[in-house]
């Protein structure tokens, strides 16, 4: 199969993630969409690694996974804290800071 198709798939996944971040209202789902974007990037990296015949892309994909895990720790802590005070995880409810 033509490896370029994987790049297209990765682009589609990245776009779905971006649209999810922009349109969804629940902070957890927004965050999941960001994770989808990161995994789309991983797919691109692995495909390019295959196309270029170098291992760098695969190594970077592992680093991305580790960083994404660290981000989950910090992100869920923040989302859970704000949920406990507001009883809501909607990003529309957090609207005190404006203008």
């Amino acid at each position: 199969m033509n490896p370029a198709n994987y790049l297209l798939l990765s682009g589609v996944l990245f776009t779905i993630g971006t649209v999810g971040v922009l349109l969804r209202r629940n902070a957890i789902v927004v965050f999941m969409s960001v994770e989808l974007m990161l995994n789309a990037v991983n797919l691109s990296l692995v495909t390019f690694s295959r196309l270029k015949g170098t291992l760098d892309g695969q190594v970077i994909a592992f680093f991305v996974m580790v960083v994404a895990a660290a981000e989950v720790v910090v992100g869920l802590a923040i989302i859970v804290t704000i949920f406990r005070t507001r009883r809501s995880a909607s990003v529309d409810d957090a609207n005190l800071l404006k203008y």
């Binding site: 971040v21 927004v30 965050f31 960001v34 910090v74 923040i78 804290t81 704000i82 990003v91 957090a94």
Partner: peptide, 9 residues
Amino acid sequence: QEAALKYFL
């Protein structure tokens, strides 16, 4: 907390 949430996302 709102600042942290916005900055993080």
